[in-house]
């Protein structure tokens, strides 16, 4: 097995963070958390994760802002993003398109709350896809 994959989880709700950690920590991943978009970007500067689990509605910098920044920065452009939010998918895609004129480049989208087994499956799949890409 290769090196442990690192996953950064970004959500302003500490209970969601704890719940997601509890699920993912049963798997062989290294996990880290951030409470808003600014903190998330700071942590990305220090270490680029293999996967980002991202909430959308957050204070300071929201998830759409994080996607925008990441997709315009070559170092982060290839980090797969899994959106985990209460916002329905079509509404948030429309909002992103209206604001940026681009389609929202995220690899998976889950409406809260996540089902643990389902979440693990999705994370596995995304990490495998990234590893295959190199």
């Amino acid at each position: 097995m290769e090196e442990q994959a690192t996953i950064l989880i970004v959500d302003d709700d500490p209970d969601i963070l704890e719940g997601i950690l509890m699920i993912l920590d049963t798997q062989p991943y290294r996990t880290a958390t951030a409470g808003d978009g600014i903190k998330c970007m700071k942590m990305m500067e220090e270490e680029v994760p293999d996967l980002l689990i991202l909430d959308l509605l957050m204070p300071r910098m929201d998830g759409w802002g994080v996607i925008r920044e990441m997709r315009s920065e070559p170092r982060f452009a290839n980090v797969p993003i899994l959106i985990l939010t209460t916002v329905v998918e079509d509404a948030s895609r429309r909002r992103y398109e209206l604001e940026t004129g681009m389609t929202m480049d995220v690899q998976d989208y889950v409406q809260k709350p996540a089902r643990p087994d389902d979440l693990i499956q999705r994370v596995k799949k995304m990490l495998a896809a990234k590893a295959a890409k190199g």
Binding site: E18, G19, K112, P113, R115
Partner: peptide, 15 residues
Amino acid sequence: AAVENYLRTMYGGYA
């Protein structure tokens, strides 16, 4: 969502 997330985590045996 936070409550349900905890509940599902417990229900799945992750805690």
